[in-house]
Design a protein around this nucleic acid. Structure first.
Length: 480
RNA sequence: GGCGCGGUCGCCAAGUGGUAAGGCCGAGGACUGCAAAUCCUCUAUCGUCGGUUCGAUUCCGACCCGCGCCUCCA
């Protein structure tokens, strides 16, 4: 068994395996905690989470590190705008990020280092770079990376140095005008920024004077300390980070430590919303809370965000969200049909997943598992699952057969991170007046007063509740 | 201009050198007092034009169209 994944560096699909030892070292550029993460952020994190899950089911031990960016232009400026100190501000948004992750059924990473906690390591890194002539300090106490000193610069994104434009903006998109003339070259980027009045209290002492680290530096420092200086196997992030962020990480790390930084690069394509680029100005920048408020479940959101190729742009639509909800229900019915055969009651597949090695044979679901292993083809995997569902296998299985199919299916659900039966509560939680109406309707129906029962049903529909009759009763379903 | 991604059924979306998975929606049927829910059945020749081939949606070339990155961004 093995897992394969497209690698940006070689532009080809490569097998993932630890280059040394028995655990796969996997680093992801995490969220900048200056507000709620949006679904575009979550697409990337969710795809990364799904990969971790697939690796786990495959039996690979993963050391997954995802940082928290809590020290950059955006967190500093936004915290000041809100009159809060940086730590109070970023703690709040980190916690919000964590609760969103939990709602989306994401596994917690092995570690989540924070940038502010790594300032000494960053300073140490800059000292090494200066020592090796890959960096230089300017008169105002800033330090820049000398891009011309690293001949491989641009290899990941395949940009030639001569094609590089300036790196003259900060991470909040504002132009750094003051230092324009201090740099040797417009392509050089900041490792350390000298203290500016607008930074407020957010400055730290360094050999070059008070200031703060440049944005790209934190990932190099945290990778180094999180993985004991070892070359890592896999590095993930949104496609936009390929240049310049990842290019800069490579340059900083390889020049400082003199060894290969990372073996395999994993980039996720961006999200469009209803055919347009997602942006605040278009008003289509959704957070998890926004969508939940519209009545969509976190699971439907997860399903939507992971159900297509991670290398292709995903056009996020409300139609798609509805489709996901329906598809999820179909998976639940299938699970129920297997459960009925086995007589088992546990619906918590996430707690009972088993590794591929234990399963040995995914049986009819083998195609679905192979699709996940082969470059995380979630769309093909789901397609294969539904293909099996369509053949109604439960009908011809005995209890033992159903049990083994359930085990394979459960592991696929675990790998995809899909938790079934999460929306059941909605059915039970109908308010008292709705339940009273529904009971009255049922009574009318029992006494064959169909005019009255139909009228009551209409009334319920107007209030957003659909009645589904069963043999000996009914259930209520909320439709937003 | 450079680096990438894509154009497959109404929508979303896999895929392979030998005549196209799947999801949603829709239609018909079963069930139902009627519905709803559920179940069953049904719907494409793959952007355009050339080439290679016994045979291409799948390989090559050209072209058209959409999108991303190249400045902060997952």
């Amino acid at each position: 068994m093995s897992v394969e994944l497209y690698d940006t560096f070689s532009r080809s699909v490569q097998t993932l395996s630890p280059w040394s030892g028995d655990k796969l070292r996997f680093y992801c550029c995490g969220p900048t905690v200056y507000g709620p993460a949006h679904i575009g952020n979550f697409r990337t994190f969710l795809i990364q989470d799904t990969l971790c899950r697939v690796l786990k089911v495959d039996g690979t031990c993963v050391q997954h590190v995802r940082n928290i960016t809590d020290l950059d232009d955006k967190t500093i400026f936004q915290s000041q705008a809100e009159g809060k100190n940086l730590s109070e501000f970023t703690t709040y948004w980190s916690e919000k990020f964590h609760s969103d992750c939990a709602a989306l059924n994401m596994l917690a990473p092995s570690a989540e280092p924070s940038a502010v906690a790594h300032i000494p390591q960053m300073i140490n890194l800059v000292e090494k770079l200066i020592e090796k002539k890959h960096a230089y300090a300017t008169d105002d106490g800033s330090v820049y990376f000398r891009v011309s000193s690293y001949k491989d610069y641009g290899r990941l994104s395949r940009l030639n140095q001569r094609e590089l434009k300036t790196q003259s903006s900060n991470s909040a998109g504002q132009v750094n005008d003051a230092d324009e003339y201090d740099r040797e070259s417009v392509t050089d980027f900041a490792l350390w920024k000298s203290r500016k009045p607008e930074d407020g209290d957010n400055y730290w002492p360094s050999p070059w004077g008070e200031g703060r680290p440049g944005w790209h530096l934190e990932c190099s420092a945290m990778v180094h300390s999180s993985f004991d200086g070892e070359t890592i196997d896999l590095h993930g992030g949104g496609i936009d980070l390929c240049f310049p962020h990842h290019e800069n990480e490579i340059a900083q790390s390889e020049c400082a430590h003199g060894k290969e930084f990372c073996k395999h690069w994993f980039h996720t394509a961006h999200l469009m919303v209803e055919g347009e680029k997602m942006s605040k100005s278009l008003g289509n920048l959704y957070t998890l809370d926004d969508l939940c408020a519209k009545g969509f479940s976190p699971m439907a959101i997860r399903y939507t965000l992971i159900s297509s190729s991670y290398r292709q742009q995903l056009n996020f639509t409300f139609d798609g969200l509805h489709a996901s909800q329906s598809a999820l229900s179909k998976l639940e019915r299938f699970a129920q049909s297997l459960l009925d055969k086995t007589g088992e009651a546990s619906k918590d597949f996430n707690a009972t997943y088993v590794t591929a090695e234990t399963i040995k044979d995914f049986g009819l679901l083998a195609k679905a598992w192979d699709a996940l292993r082969q470059n995380l083809n979630t769309a093909a995997s789901l397609g294969a699952i539904f293909g099996v569902i369509g053949s109604n296998p439960a009908a011809s299985l005995d209890a033992e057969g159903a049990r083994s199919m359930l085990r394979a299916f459960g592991s696929l659900l675990y790998a995809l991170g899909l938790e079934l039966y999460k929306t059941e509560d909605k059915i039970i939680d109908a308010p008292a007046d709705i339940i009273a109406l529904a009971n009255a309707r049922w009574a009318a129906k029992q006494s064959k007063d169909f005019n009255k029962s139909d009228a009551l049903r209409e009334e319920l529909i107007e209030k957003g509740w659909v009645v589904n009759d069963e043999k000996d009763g009914f259930n209520l379903e909320y439709r937003s």
